[in-house]
Design a protein around this nucleic acid. Structure first.
Lengths: 187, 187
DNA sequence: TCCATTTTTTAACAAATGTAAAAGGATGCT
DNA sequence: AGCATCCTTTTACATTTGTTAAAAAATGGA
């Protein structure tokens, strides 16, 4: 497990000691395509790292479903509200392909945070990077038109474009599927 | 300074020891209304806590300015990209009233993070709370119409409504000032 | 108070996006 | 292969929001 973690980008900033600590609590696990790994109405007691496959996080509304995050190999994956506030969250996470995951209990992760300064700072930086990326997306919604946001998605995530249904990409970009079709048709 | 920090909500989860550590590096500072405290094109070497007054963060585009954050008494205030990546950021921060601030050098904050597990976890939680709030706003842009977003702003931030120019609130909500006027007129 | 400046509202029109429904494609299962 | 299901595109129309310009209202200083 130590060797496995060592090859994951997000762990590369950690010392060997911290990585061994992580490895003690980490499990390798597989789930098939279509699995709803995390449900909005439950407290999810695990934290995951995607090793292969892709996933999406979405929120259910009255008559629509909003996809607001995609995860690829190497990304961390958890229920924000479980992780941060120990409450049921607003997001579901669905595996869009068969996935191989690292699984760690939140309780174990938190004791690592409390007992190891390096890991606490690792967790801090992880949250900060997500924060800055999310804020950029929020700002881009005001600055850029839907066509431009689509072009950026194509440039930055060509792999996702091929593997994810367009209806999910549409809601990720903040438009309806009809609008995305229009953009793609170049009209 | 220790007594002063002790009364700020965001520091209340810290032990006395950690608070004394903070106090060693904290300074009390005042700036007048209109000050551009943080500029997008510079690395900002400080981290601030607002003690009184209000502020906004905004990003400049070609022909518009997007306000994406408001700060009130008790909020932390920093340049994300300076703080997180040590690079010039995308945001300016303007003081909308005379403000009293706590100022701490980022270099000092980072050494606190690296030397004190409790403070590292405090910083982690701070980033996590901002993250969850930002993500909610992003999701709400898709789920809710502009009129509903305005109503929520009115309910959640009545103080800001009175003290901030409507043009800034409009861009915070992701609409033009004309649209916000229409919403307010109930049309 | 008066004036200049800034902010907010209103109006008319244009553009972008949403909605609903239908048709065409693609996919997966038996 | 054939069928059912789901995804994507297209069309027509409605609605929302943006743009530009002007007027009204508020603000701040001399």
């Amino acid at each position: 497990m130590y060797q496995q973690l060592k090859n994951i980008e997000i762990f590369k900033s950690l010392s060997d000691d911290s990585l061994h600590e992580f490895a003690k609590h980490a499990q390798d696990i597989n789930y098939p395509k279509g699995t709803i790994l995390i449900r909005a109405d439950r407290v999810e007691p695990h934290f995951y790292v995607l090793q292969s496959g892709i996933a999406r996080a979405y929120s259910d509304g009255e008559n629509q479903q909003i996809t607001f995050w995609f995860g690829e190999s190497g990304n961390v994956l958890f229920s924000f509200n479980s992780y941060i506030n120990n409450k049921p969250g607003y997001e579901n996470i669905e595996l869009l392909e068969d996935c191989r995951l690292i699984q760690i209990k939140l309780a174990d992760l938190f004791s690592l945070y409390n007992g190891n300064t390096e890991i606490a700072n690792w967790g801090r930086k992880m949250a900060e990077q997500e924060l800055i990326a999310t804020e950029r997306r929020l700002i881009d919604r005001s600055f850029k038109g839907a066509a431009e946001r689509y072009q950026e998605f194509v440039n930055q995530s060509p792999a996702l474009l091929k593997r994810v249904a367009l209806k999910h990409i549409a809601s990720y970009l903040g438009v309806t599927q009809v609008t995305l079709s229009r953009i793609r048709a170049g009209k």
